[in-house]
Amino acid sequence: MNDEVFRLLPEAVATDDIVDDPEFTEVTRNGEVYTLFRIVRFTHEATDHPEGWTHLANVVRVRNSAIGVALLRIENRVIEDARVTISNNSP
C-alpha cells in the first residue's frame, strides 16, 4: 500500500459518513457483466491517486456470496466507478 496516496481511516468511520448508498454495481467484461456489491467498511482514503480512486473498502458480493476489496471513485457521496478484487468466494 502506498502510504503517500492512501490514508488509513479510523474504524469509527461509518459507511453512511461517506456514501448515500452502500450498494454499488461493478461493470466488467467490456460493459457486459454487472455484479452487485455492498460496502462493509471503508478502510482507506486516497489523495491524488493517479487512476482517480478516492477510497478503498471491504466489500461483500450481494448475490453468490463472496468477500473482497474495492477501489472506489466517489464524488458527491455517490460511487461513480469501482474495481473489485475478490479474495474469498465463501465467507
Binding site: 448508498d21 450498494e23 454499488f24 454495481t25 461493470v27 454487472y34 455484479t35 452487485l36 455517490v78
Partner: peptide, 13 residues
C-alpha cells in the same frame, strides 16, 4: 446517478 442506473440494470439482469 450512474450508480443507481447500474444497480437497476444489475437487478433486471
Amino acid at each position: 446517478s450512474i450508480q443507481k442506473v447500474r444497480n437497476r440494470i444489475e437487478n433486471l439482469l
